[in-house]
Computed example of a mutant assay.
Amino acid sequence: MAFVKITEQPSLYDNLEEKSVREILQDINTEDQKVALAVQKAIPQIEKLVTQIVPRMKQGGRIFYLGAGTSGRLGVLDASEIPPTFGMPPSLVIGLIAGGDTALRNPVENAEDDMNRGWEELQEHGVNNLDTVIGIAASGTTPYVVGALRAARAHGILTASISSNPDSPIAHEADVPIEMIVGPEFVTGSSRMKSGTGQKMILNMISTSVMIQLGRVKGNRMVNMQLTNQKLVDRGTRMVADELGLDYEQAKRLLLLHGSVKKAVDAWHTSQNK
Rank of each mutant, 00 (worst) to 15 (best):
V176A: 00
Q59R: 05
G215N: 08
G61M: 00
D247F: 08
I28E: 15
I202G: 03
L257A: 15
S91V: 10
A267V: 08
V127L: 02
L122F: 10
A137D: 04
A241G: 12
D167K: 07
N129C: 06
Q213L: 15
V127G: 02
E47I: 06
E179T: 02
N224S: 03
E8L: 13
R235L: 03
F186C: 02
L149T: 11
V76R: 03
L92S: 03
S20P: 08
T102Y: 01
Y144R: 03
D167N: 08
G196Y: 14
L104I: 08
R153N: 00
D27S: 13
G236L: 09
K19H: 04
E120I: 04
P55E: 15
V133Q: 11
V210L: 06
V4Q: 02
S168W: 12
M205F: 09
Y144W: 11
N29K: 03
S80Q: 01
T102D: 10
P177T: 07
I82R: 08
S164P: 04
G215I: 02
I63M: 07
D247R: 10
N116Q: 12
V145Q: 08
V240N: 00
G135Q: 13
D266S: 04
L92A: 01
M193G: 08
S190W: 14
K218A: 13
E31S: 12
I24L: 14
I157P: 07
R221I: 00
N15Y: 04
R105D: 11
G72E: 05
K58S: 00
Q45Y: 12
Y248M: 10
I212P: 03
K194R: 13
T237C: 12
L227E: 06
T142G: 01
L255T: 06
I53F: 03
K34E: 15
P177Q: 02
I170D: 04
Q199T: 13
S271L: 14
V217F: 07
G67Q: 12
V176G: 11
L214I: 01
Q230Y: 12
S190D: 09
M205L: 14
I43A: 04
V233Y: 09
V4D: 07
L92M: 07
L158Q: 11
I28Q: 15
A152G: 06
V217E: 09
V35T: 10
K231A: 03
V127N: 01
V35M: 01
K194C: 07
D113H: 08
R22V: 09
R150Q: 02
W268S: 01
S161K: 02
N15D: 13
L25I: 03
E179W: 03
P55V: 00
T51L: 11
I97M: 06
P44D: 13
Y144K: 10
